[in-house]
């Protein structure tokens, strides 16, 4: 018997996440004149990323509720693991 799992995408505090298509992603990068690695990151292991089935390298559009702007759009690139600078050499 499988338990019915709670769909986190429906939770009020989880903002809308949309996986961008290749063309859309291209457009975003061009608009901000930026390489994907300069975008904010989100771990592939993030619960929402797993739920919407995004893969490393994908760009996700996140639409949040905002106190100042009502709606705030941001983009994140999915990464395998953190790329934060390490203290040690590899």
């Amino acid at each position: 018997m499988t338990k019915k799992r709670f769909n986190i995408l429906e939770h009020e505090l989880v903002p809308e996440h949309i996986v961008l298509s290749k063309e859309e992603a291209e457009k975003v990068l061009e608009h901000y004149n930026i390489k994907p690695e300069k975008l904010p990151k989100i771990l592939a292991s993030d619960p929402v990323v797993r739920t919407i089935n995004a893969k490393p390298g994908d760009i996700i559009k996140i639409i949040r509720k905002s106190r100042t702007a009502k709606k705030a759009v941001s983009y994140r690139v999915v990464v395998e693991e953190t790329t934060a600078p390490t203290l040690m050499k590899k």
Binding site: K38, P40, A69
Partner: peptide, 18 residues
């Protein structure tokens, strides 16, 4: 956009409303 010295994006619109 708000960026750091590596021009990594911190915020896509300053204060979300610019």
């Amino acid at each position: 956009t708000v960026r750091d010295t590596d021009s990594e994006i911190i915020q896509f619109m300053y204060g979300e409303d610019g």
